[in-house]
Amino acid sequence: MGQSGIDAWGARTVTTSRPTLAVWKFSSCDGCQLTLLDCEDEILGLSEAIDIAYFLEAGHDRVDQMYDVSLVEGSITTAHDAERIREVRAASRKLVTIGACATSGGIQALRNSADVQEFTSIVYAHPEFIKTLETSTGIADHVPVDLELRGCPISRTQLLEAISALLAGRTPRLPSYSVCQECKQAGNACVLVASGTPCLGPVTQAGCHSLCPSIGRGCFGCFGPSESANTAALTEQLRRVGTNDRDIERSFSTFNVNAPEFRTAALALYPIQSPRRGSE
């Protein structure tokens, strides 16, 4: 592990044998990258253990080299993105996607069931300058991915767990069971049961330490589908507690709308494509 290299300015020679880490951005809001900077207590230990060789948010410039670990944020929405992610993959020993955009296409994947031309004509003064794909897709739709960190944004704890596991050569502990397990371990009562609050926790992957239910709000599914997510049964229960189909469809159509289980759940309620725009 660890590659020596010279940065773009030729001023800094990397002679360390520390593993190198790069952080890459595609179509995204930068929130997941900022989680790395949010590791305030650990950032010093982290920078001693690894060489953060490419990280725009922290002021680094690009280093042309092979990276031991690449964290990839954002979805693929342009032809240029689709090319660039292949270069990133080729330059990375381990590629870790961070966040809902990189793992499933993000909120921008709402375009996947809509007319992109119509969107650009509404949003931009000169839509003819916009070159974009019809879809927003996760990184794994384009190149092989070694590890996925879910969430919008990702969990700081999971990011540190993933990096420390990669450094130690062990399998990171990233449970794929439901948010409910973490929620009950935290000692919370179920918000769906006790308040009738619509909650996607039973079909959403754990990892956030049940952030929203712990403050009495329903989980909005930002970690995407859990293993064996039974969205049909949850949809029935949400109807029973008085949630209308429109709101249920919307709850599945957020940051992970392009995750197959959530997309199927949303389409089961509104099979006609593109009903969202124009009606309100």
């Binding site: 069971y177 439901s178 409910c180 397990q181 009950k184 371990q185 179920c190 926790g201 039973p202 079909v203 859990s226 293993e227 064996s228 039974n230 049909a232 049964a233 949850l234």
Partner: peptide
């Protein structure tokens, strides 16, 4: 199984 969410609430509580 068609109704069960596999969420684990029963075992946790």
């Amino acid at each position: 199984a068609a109704r069960c969410l596999s969420c684990g609430n029963c075992t946790m509580s």
